[in-house]
Every structure is written in C-alpha cells, then in structure tokens.
Design a protein around this nucleic acid. Structure first.
Lengths: 185, 185
DNA sequence: CTGTAGTGGAACACAGGTGTTCCATCGCGG
DNA sequence: CCGCGATGGAACACCTGTGTTCCACTACAG
C-alpha cells in the first residue's frame, strides 16, 4: 500500500510550517489565521488536526526534530566545550522563528530529555578543559544561550538594516565572552 | 477638597499590581483572573478601568515609573560605563515579575524614549572609557541586558532551590563578561 | 437614623474562536 | 464518463471573555 498520498503530506507540512511562523509572533493566534497563512481552508486544517491541541502537538514534534537536526550538525563531541557550544549556537540561530516559539515555552519542556543532558555534558566538558567558567552551572549556561538566541533573533527582526551575518557575529562574540569567564585573555 | 478618597487609590493599586503579576505569567490572562487575584469583583475592576485597554495603559504607566525609579537608584552618571550598566542591572533585577512583562513587549516600547537614549549614552561612555567593547552597538547591549535579566528571573522562578543572591551573582558575572569584550584580563 | 461611597453578584447581549456538519467544486485515474 | 480523493465555503451550536446594567449589601459620616 502507498503511504498516505503525498499531497496530504505536503498540505500537512504547510500547515505546521505556517503554525510555527505565526505562533512565534503570537502564541495565541487563531486557527483561522494559521489556515490562511498556509493558504488552506479552515475546514481542511481541522481535517488534519481535529483539535487545536493536535496541531500544537505536531508543532512540538516538528520543533523537536529541527532542534535535534541542528544539534547533530553542531558535532557537539568535537573540540573544547566552548567551541561546541558556539557551533550549536550558530546552528540554532539558523532555526529562525522557531527560536521565539521554543523560548516562550515553560523553559526546558522544549528539548528532548536526552538533548538537555547531552548539552549539560558539553558544558561540563568545557568546565574541565577550561574553556567555560566552572562557576557557571550548566543549566544557567543553557538558559543564557537561549535568551541570547532569542534576543539576537528579535534584534534581527526589528532592525531591517542589520544583516543576519552581523547579528550572528555579535551573538557568538557575546556568548563566547559571557561563558569564558574573567580569567582568560 | 480631598483627593479621591484614599480607599479608591488602594483598590486601584491592588488591581494594577495584580495585573502586572498575572500578565507577566500569561499576557492573555482574563480580567476575571486579575480581579480575583486583586481580591476584587470583576464589576469593581470595570469601575476603575472601563476597558481592558485602560488597564493595560495603567500597567504600562506603572511599569514605566518603576523602571524610572530603578534607573535613578542606579546613578548612571557615576563610574565607568560598565559599572553603571551593572548597577542598573542589579536595580532592574529587583523589579521581579515586571521583567517578564517588559521583555514580552514589542521590545523598546517599554522604556520612555528619554531613558532609552540615556542608557545608550552610558554604553557609549563605556565604549570611550574602555569598559565596554566598542564593537557592540548600544542597542545590542541593551537587548542583551534585557534578555539576560529575563533569563535570570525565569531561572530563579523555575528553581526553588536557587537563592536570589546567587542568581544575581551569576547574572552580573555573565553580563560583565559579555560586555567587557575579549581584550581585558 | 439616613444618605452616600464603595463594593459584589447576577444577568444580559455581544464578539470572537472553536469544532462540526453538509454540500459544492476540482482534478485525476479507471 | 464515473468515482474518488482532496479541498473550500457556508452554516451551525458552543464556549469564553468582555462590557454593561441593575440591585443588594456594608461601612461610615453627618
């Protein structure tokens, strides 16, 4: 048997993508707006996601997958802890509007349990190799990373003049300094 | 003539305070919830604020005053730019749940126009005296400050074990490092 | 005691989002 | 051509929040 007809998958994906984009700007946006953004009738949206909660669940799954993909691209096991953290920072930054969505969550419910601990392990590696200030607890560094990612993303959105590359440069610079601690040159 | 009877002011203030606390946790919370939190009937709330927008305006004014008061306490004209920025950071941190509220704004609509430019002047002073990395634009430093304040506040809220003092210490340390730049020891 | 300020509750109409049903349309393969 | 999958629109009932009105209660000053 064929897997569900292909066109269904495309429509479904369009709805989820639109939902991520709109929910990032307004977590309370209506299903009608999402349907319109996905260029789909509200009826069709309900055909794919019976209740609002079903769509939210699909958005969470999609978001989780994108985060996982970004973390894989960052090759967290390479280099010093701080280097790995900055690579992850760059990959996450590419996730765009998803950042707003993750950041507005109850904080921590966003990452898969496994990735959270993986990331903490990276930071502890940074503590050990001297690239991350040992005084900073891993979960503090993580919340610092997320808040700066969100700040960078909204900074970019509010200043039409700023280039993506320039903002990414500011972001990595400040994160690197914040994490490095007072000792290094 | 006596100014409006005193009890009115108390009730009004209770409503605004409750609104700030609840809106920080849920920007879309209902007037009924706010009235309940203020231990006031919904009818009474409408007696003070005819429309939702009126309450929001009062919240904005109250928030603006608290921010102004905090900025005054920080004595921004003393010391190096970075020192002034860190004092402001400490004062703002004491504002508590108001931080979430300010941070969820369209960013920048929160501060009075004057304070925004005052703060930018402080940062430029930091550029000049070498205490703040001149590569970082003033508005970037400001958004960095707010995002870290928000992160610190929610970090404190989610970890019942963490002491306010300890979190404030982490906050000032990371902000100081992020802003100082790569050159200093 | 009486009037008044402040309040709370019940009830109402209204608006908007939600979830559902029903029907019409379009494209495509048999 | 016919049927089927996919869609869109209209209409509906429902729920929640909002803004308003009306009435009853309490505290307190004159």
């Amino acid at each position: 048997m064929r897997v569900t007809s292909g066109i269904r998958n495309r429509t479904r994906q369009a709805i989820v993508d639109a939902a991520i984009t709109l929910l990032a700007g307004n977590p309370a946006c209506s299903l009608g707006e999402i349907a319109a953004a996905a260029e789909v009738g509200r009826t069709t949206l309900h055909r794919y996601f019976a209740e609002r909660a079903d769509l939210m669940a699909a958005v969470a799954v999609e978001g989780g997958e994108r985060l996982t993909r970004a973390a894989r691209l960052a090759e967290l096991d390479k280099g010093t802890g701080a280097e790995a953290l900055l690579r992850l920072c760059r990959e996450y930054f590419d996730l765009g509007s998803l950042l707003s969505l993750v950041f507005s969550e109850p904080e921590g419910a966003c990452l898969d349990e496994g990735e959270q601990t993986d990331l903490e392990a990276v930071i502890r590696r940074g503590h050990a190799d001297g690239s991350i200030d040992p005084v900073l607890p891993p979960d503090w560094v993580i919340s610092l990373l997320w808040s700066q990612l969100y700040a960078a993303w909204s900074y970019l959105g509010e200043r039409p003049g700023a280039s993506r590359h320039h903002v990414l440069d500011l972001l990595t610079r400040t994160v690197a300094n914040a994490v490095r601690g007072p000792g290094a040159i």
